[in-house]
């Protein structure tokens, strides 16, 4: 019973969620990730890094008319979640995020001292 006990937030990690489809593209400078999370407003999107784990999470918020009864549902959960393990050469402090029309774009650069360097070979 110490003050240092950190209370976990109410966001239930175990709550069922959809797995958003992603594209991951790597170039020499880093990794670009695109994730489809339609229906999530910007303020209900959560991108976080804990240790080497990257978590994408979003809550779907549609304006449904009152008294609507579902007839057919392919998106049947109001939440997206997906986690990735980041490798060590990626600089998680410098992640840039954009979110537009339900597509999240993350740019995760490689740490500068780990960027590839061309070593010239001296011919003797």
């Amino acid at each position: 019973m110490s003050d240092q006990v950190v209370k976990r937030e109410a966001t239930p990690q175990d709550e069922a969620a959809l797995r958003p489809p992603v594209d991951v593209i790597e170039d020499v400078g880093g990794i670009t990730l695109y994730a489809d999370m339609p229906g999530v407003p910007k303020d209900k999107l959560d991108v976080r890094v804990e240790g080497d784990t990257l978590t994408l999470e979003g809550v779907v918020d549609l304006t449904l008319p009152e008294g609507m009864e579902p007839l057919h549902a392919e998106v049947n959960l109001p939440r997206y979640r997906r986690t990735f393990t980041l490798s060590k050469e990626l600089d998680s402090d410098k992640i840039a995020a954009e979110f537009r029309h339900g597509v999240l774009k993350l740019r995760i650069p490689k740490a500068e001292h780990l960027q590839p360097r061309k070593i010239s070979v001296a011919v003797v």
Binding site: P38, L64, M68, E69, L71, H72, A73, E74, V103
Partner: peptide, 22 residues
């Protein structure tokens, strides 16, 4: 199945939601 679709109805309308991000 892109875009994924949800369909609902009320007494006054039929509501179609097509999830077409980007």
């Amino acid at each position: 199945g892109f875009p994924a679709m949800n369909v609902g109805s009320t007494a006054r309308s039929v509501e179609v939601y097509a999830f077409a991000p980007g």
